[in-house]
Every structure is written in structure tokens, then in C-alpha cells.
């Protein structure tokens, strides 16, 4: 086993820290449409959460899928992967 030198004062080391929104509120990237979940159709299968490239869907086993519009980039992929078509793209207000 090697002797480990204790880390120097973190404040002086240029280490990045994990943060939400490192690229800003990416929800601003959406231009015309946003995805909306029809919770009466949602079967809580988790697929949209697994696939969402914006990492902004959370599926609750009771309430179903919820989209965080602060970060949703509006790619529309969730509408394509949902097996029961519970998500659709609607014009932004």
C-alpha cells in the first residue's frame, strides 16, 4: 500500500463539481413545441425516462411521467419511444 498524500485545500484545486444546468436552462432551446404527458394513458413503464436525452423526465410508479420543462430541449424523442403514445408535442403558449 502506498502512502497517500492528503489532498491540498480544495479551494485551490481547479476541480469541477457536478451541477444541474451546466449549460444553462436548456428548456430555452425549445422553439415551437413541447411534450405533454397524458397521465390517463401512461402505464408507468419508465421507457421515456430511460431514453430522454434531456435527462428531464422522472417516472413515478403512481403518478406516471413528469417532464421538467426547465431543461426539456424539445427533441420529441419521448413521443417516439412511448409504447402507448401517452406523450404528444403541442405548440408552446
Amino acid at each position: 500500500m502506498v502512502k497517500v498524500v492528503p489532498p491540498v485545500d480544495n479551494a485551490k484545486v481547479p476541480l469541477t463539481k457536478p451541477v444541474e444546468g451546466v449549460g444553462g436552462k436548456t428548456g430555452l432551446w425549445r422553439t415551437m413545441y413541447k411534450p405533454v404527458v397524458d397521465s390517463s394513458k401512461c402505464t408507468k413503464c419508465f421507457l421515456c425516462e430511460i431514453y430522454c436525452p434531456g435527462v428531464c423526465i422522472v417516472v413515478d410508479p403512481v403518478k406516471g411521467a413528469t417532464i421538467n420543462y426547465d431543461y426539456c430541449k424539445g427533441c420529441g424523442l419521448c413521443t417516439d419511444v412511448c409504447p402507448v403514445k401517452a406523450i404528444s408535442m403541442v405548440p408552446e403558449e
Binding site: 457536478p18 444541474e20 449549460g23 436548456t26 436525452p53 435527462v55 428531464c56 421538467n68 426547465d70 420529441g76
Partner: peptide
């Protein structure tokens, strides 16, 4: 895996 990265929409 946190939201708000700068990948293109639909990025794998």
C-alpha cells in the same frame, strides 16, 4: 446524470 448539459437535442 444531471439535466442541462449542452448536448444537441436527441443526443445518444
Amino acid at each position: 446524470v444531471l439535466p442541462g448539459d449542452t448536448s444537441c437535442p436527441g443526443c445518444p
